[in-house]
């Protein structure tokens, strides 16, 4: 079980209101990602759920039970921290055993769970080492192991991959997803990286300044961003947003077109511009096109083989049904 409900939750630090009244339901077994730029309140929200911070008002329910005033230890939640927060003076084995020791589990049950977690996380050979002797990825696994053995009703991850290098990050991302498939336990995952959000989530919660901008599956958010902020935040490279004339032609204050929804041609098209930088990734090429009269730079994704270079003249055509229209307030029209 692991159904978490936030009911009109607010948080202020002194005079500063970090989270305005917020409602959210996280269903049992869901992988939910809180995503947003730094300072958007996503970590605070996670810490409120964890019980590491008090809510200023409102209610948090875990499996229907009011947990608002419960100390963290009683919420049956496990957390993986950004810094892993391993106990440096304990061996890996003792680190993993610590929550079970606190819960007073019998020794043999502790041992059984440690062994199975270690096997699942490839840590069997490292059980007697100290965290200081492990690599970043291994430390991450220990932190996950320490969370698993408690058999919590939900896992909380606070930017767990941001201290890893890029290659390791992709691997760990997959491991966490596989873990989720295997355990089918609720996971709440905080990140500022929209790629992690898109690839991992069942449900994404986009936050800005403590407000929920949109909740939905990755593809819903991609296809129908509710406003300009979500449109710009979800998807990589960023969506191109234009105002003025081209927008008015589509009957909107602003329009947005994703780089992958613009066709490029050297001969003809709706818009015209000059190639600034062409980023060749092999499979794709990202063109940064200037002097279009639309915006400073228009980003376009083209086929990796398209022979264009700096200074070339190029024509762009947006896919008509993939144009997002926004009104004056930045809301989807």
């Amino acid at each position: 079980m692991g159904r978490i409900t936030l009911d009109k939750v607010t948080k202020s630090f002194g005079e500063v209101n970090v989270i305005p009244p917020l409602d959210l339901t996280i269903n049992d077994g869901e992988f939910v990602v809180f995503v947003g730029p730094s300072g958007c309140g996503k970590s605070t929200l996670l810490r409120l759920i964890a019980g590491l911070e008090d809510v200023t008002s409102g209610q948090i329910r875990i499996d229907g039970e009011d947990a608002t005033r419960m100390p963290p230890a009683q919420r049956r939640l496990a957390m993986v921290f950004q810094s892993y927060a391993l106990y440096p003076h304990m061996s890996v084995r003792k680190n993993i055993a610590f929550p079970m020791k606190m819960a007073g589990l019998p020794e043999d049950e502790q041992k059984r769970r440690i062994d199975s977690a270690a096997k699942a996380l490839n840590l069997t050979d490292y059980l007697d080492r100290r965290p200081g002797q492990l690599s970043g990825g291994q430390r991450q696994r220990v932190a996950i192991g320490r969370a698993i053995v408690r058999e919590p009703s939900a896992f909380l991850f606070d930017e767990p991959l941001s201290n890893l290098d890029a290659a390791l990050r992709v691997g760990m991302r997959l491991e966490i997803m596989e873990l989720h498939k295997r355990l089918a336990t609720t996971m709440i995952y905080v990140t500022h990286d929209q790629v992690e959000a898109m690839t991992m989530a069942d449900k994404i919660v986009v936050l800005r300044a403590g407000n929920i901008e949109q909740v939905g599956s990755p593809l819903e958010l991609y296809r129908e961003p509710r406003n300009e902020f979500v449109a710009g935040f979800i998807g990589s490279p960023k969506m191109n947003i234009f105002g003025g004339n081209p927008a008015q032609q589509h009957g909107a204050a602003k329009i947005g077109v994703r780089p992958e929804h613009i066709a490029a041609s050297t001969e003809t098209g709706t818009w015209e511009g000059v190639v600034g930088v062409a980023e060749h990734l092999g499979s794709d090429t990202f063109l940064h096109v200037h002097e279009t009269g639309l915006a400073e730079t228009v980003t376009v994704r083209v086929d990796g083989e398209l022979p264009v270079k700096h200074g070339d003249r190029i024509f762009l055509t947006p896919e008509a049904d993939k144009i997002h229209r926004f009104n004056e307030q930045g809301l989807r029209a």
């Binding site: 963290p72 950004q82 810094s83 606190m102």
Partner: peptide, 15 residues
């Protein structure tokens, strides 16, 4: 000492 480690202990059920 990083505060996160103490918070981890709190999450792990330590009084």
């Amino acid at each position: 000492i990083p505060g996160e480690i103490l918070e981890a202990a709190r999450m792990d059920g330590a009084s």
